[in-house]
Design a protein around this nucleic acid. Structure first.
Lengths: 344, 344
DNA sequence: TTGTACGCGTTATCAT
DNA sequence: ATGATAACGCGTACAA
């Protein structure tokens, strides 16, 4: 079955292909009645323009791509929601693409730029392991969202980041526990060698301990389990179990993400440990779920909406050439709920 | 800046474009050393083939698209994970596309078919409101996943469905509560006019009541709140609150999705109602979260993995022409956890 | 084994 | 306001 093309429509209408093209793309130079007649034929025959051909020919588009690594992350969902609104308001069309864990987002971006003539790109959950010079091949504006700021070196000015100040906020969260009288604070976190957010949150924890004269107990630092997805409820569950079975004493548990905290809740409960009477628990992120467990989870809320807006604004400015790269660090908000007890 | 094309590579290498094309596409008819030399130049210049041009030229691809409405749904995530594996194993490349709430998935599908020369399509969370004859325009194999079976009329054989038997399982869940001695069973569900899953689950509830000689109390049927996302924790929370403030008596609460159940937990707790001592609660879906709240939520687990496999198998058979449309109804599994109490 | 030349379906340019 | 035609970048007969 021969696919129907613009030529067919032109022939049927007795006009030139250019005219049909004009009708499709809402060009001004066309007589209203001609347009209507063409539209009618298009509907009748169910003609659908071939995007490959369009993109091939077009020199530019109004498309902004969002490349998300880990679409499961509820944080990203909120960000995407806001971005969707902003992009629409500014007449961009949005292309949302999932990035697989083993996939190379930069390679994907490079392909898409050519294929879709992108105006800009937003990376969510960007990975930093790319070979030197690879990222520089992206010649169009792009913004890195919520990826963990790189330690304060020169890297920051080469790209645009929008992220919460993970190091500082993690420090704050840890210090909060210390101020509540806790000294034996266990942490569920990424390993030391982790390259992004996880590492920063761990560093904040370590720094807070150091600044308060508390010796680090390595046995209280529990790395993610590789038996299940990182930053998931099961991961919080199994890591807390292994913490408990180690027999190490602790009065507070810092889960570096709320959903892990929820997993920790279960492990603690099953061990007959009460929250916060026996052990205080805190999370990170400000996930919705934290308000739906008992006791409500004390957490550090990331200002997701503002960050999403900042991501868009930054990209918008880059596209318009009205600003250079910026590294926007956001402050979080410590939400005191019910999962922490002050001890003497 | 002129983008680098296949011609440039050919010129640089001193070969014809055909040879370069062969190198890119791993064609057999090419001398290994030629290929290597070409590859080297490609890497050096960072040449990336333009997919629009490729798709335009190609008559077919090995791509299967998954069109998801509501990527947030954890159920879909599990399904996608399995599909990803299956598709890879059979050398399909997978294209995952989010469908916006106001977007028309059939129109999108039609575009993609032309643009990417799709081999098949999988719809997750399909909406049924499409104008007559619209769906028939899709001339390539497609499968509808987890959409709620249409009431047993002829529709079923026109497309391929894979879904849990919502009506029956909802019936079973309700009957389970009845057998436990409950007669005043509140339900958080879609409205009567809802067209898919929600309606079926409500119907199952109604039928179970009727079959057991229990009069329906309309004040115990709480429709989704439109103030927040359907099938979400907040929705379960606010609907349960309105149920409570109605003053209507009930001994069991049936949330037609687990995350709504979790929301209900909170509302009940805040009202000083104990689960399951004062009120029994059940959910639907078998979401991971149900195991992380206290008490663990009794639910009806959808056999997600098997369903995902069935979706793939069905599509695969359709593509190979080895079967016609099928309507696969899966059974769920009632998981008795801790949130239901037997009453006299 | 390799190269030439054409066409995929569309839009931009330039006529008319 | 409309039409003819040349690209866009690639794959592939077909020829060599």
């Amino acid at each position: 079955m021969p696919e129907i093309t613009i030529k067919d429509i032109a022939r049927i209408c007795g006009v030139g292909v250019t005219t049909v093209s004009r009708a499709i793309n809402n060009h001004p130079d066309i007589k209203p009645e001609t347009r209507q007649q063409i539209q009618k034929v298009i509907d009748q025959y169910g003609y659908i323009p071939n995007n490959s051909a369009r993109n091939l020919k077009r020199t530019e588009s109004n498309t902004v791509a969002i490349l998300v690594r880990g679409i499961t992350n509820p944080l990203f969902n909120s960000i995407i929601k806001v971005l969707n609104i902003e992009l629409k308001r500014h007449k961009f069309s949005m292309l949302l693409q999932q990035v697989d864990y083993e996939e190379d987002e930069v390679a994907l971006a490079l392909e898409l730029i050519k294929e879709k003539r992108l105006k800009g790109i937003i990376f969510l959950g960007f990975n930093y392991y790319h070979p030197e010079g690879e990222i520089e091949k992206i010649k169009i504006p792009f913004v890195l969202g919520t990826v963990g700021a790189i330690d304060g070196d020169e890297d920051c000015s080469r790209y645009s980041h929008v992220t919460v100040d993970d190091l500082r906020e993690s420090y704050r969260m840890t210090e909060y526990l210390i101020k509540k009288g806790h000294r034996d604070i266990a942490i569920l976190s990424a390993e030391e060698k982790d390259s992004s957010v996880g590492k920063l949150r761990l560093d904040g924890y370590l720094k807070a301990l150091a600044d308060n004269g508390i010796a680090v107990n390595p046995r209280l630092i529990i790395p993610f389990s590789d038996t299940c997805e990182h930053y998931s409820m099961p991961n919080g569950y199994v890591t807390t179990q292994s913490l408990l079975s180690s027999g190490e004493k602790f009065t507070a548990l810092y889960a570096t993400s709320d959903i892990m905290g929820v997993g920790a809740y279960r492990a603690l409960r099953e061990a007959g440990i009460r929250i916060p009477e026996d052990v205080s628990v805190v999370g990170f992120d400000g996930a919705e779920m934290g308000d739906y467990v008992l006791p409500k989870l004390t957490t550090l809320k990331q200002p997701v909406e503002e960050m999403a807006k900042a991501i868009f604004d930054q990209l918008y400015d880059l596209i318009n050439g009205t600003c250079g790269n910026k590294n926007l660090l956001f402050c979080g908000k410590l939400l005191e709920k019910e999962s922490v007890r002050e001890i003497s």
